[in-house]
């Protein structure tokens, strides 16, 4: 609570903040929609595409089992992608805005 007199509207209008907001929104919604669709493919596939799920691909390991395992992999990849992007880009952009605000 170091500085209670911050002009929030000014930061909001700052092109740098706008750029951060735009980048973050696109990236997050993209990942969110992809992960949700991918997740719901599992119950839908298990119910309506059983013949596909039953195809054996690796010994007794069938497509359905590999698909369920891939859900874990995809979740981890999304987490990794987000954290990489956030650590490298979003944090730096936010830090710039913080520096500007506190320097002003």
């Amino acid at each position: 609570m170091s500085n209670p007199n911050i002009n929030w509207a000014a930061i909001d209008a700052n092109p740098k903040f706008q750029a951060l907001h735009r980048k973050k929104t696109t990236f997050l919604w993209g990942l969110m929609i992809f992960s949700t669709v991918y997740y719901f493919l599992l119950p839908i596939g298990a119910a309506y595409f059983q013949e596909l799920f039953k195809i054996k691909v690796w010994g007794v390991v069938n497509f359905g089992l590999l698909f369920a395992l891939s859900e874990f992999l995809v979740a981890w990849i999304i987490a990794f992608m987000y954290s990489k992007k956030a650590n490298a880009e979003f944090d730096a952009m936010a830090q710039e805005i913080i520096n500007e605000t506190q320097g002003a």
């Binding site: 609570m1 170091s2 500085n3 911050i6 929030w8 930061i11 909001d12 903040f17 951060l20 907001h21 973050k24 936010a94 805005i97 913080i98 605000t101």
Partner: peptide, 10 residues
């Protein structure tokens, strides 16, 4: 709210 949740200021 929007600035704070994105930057962590304050």
């Amino acid at each position: 709210l929007y600035v704070r949740q994105n930057t962590g200021i304050n």
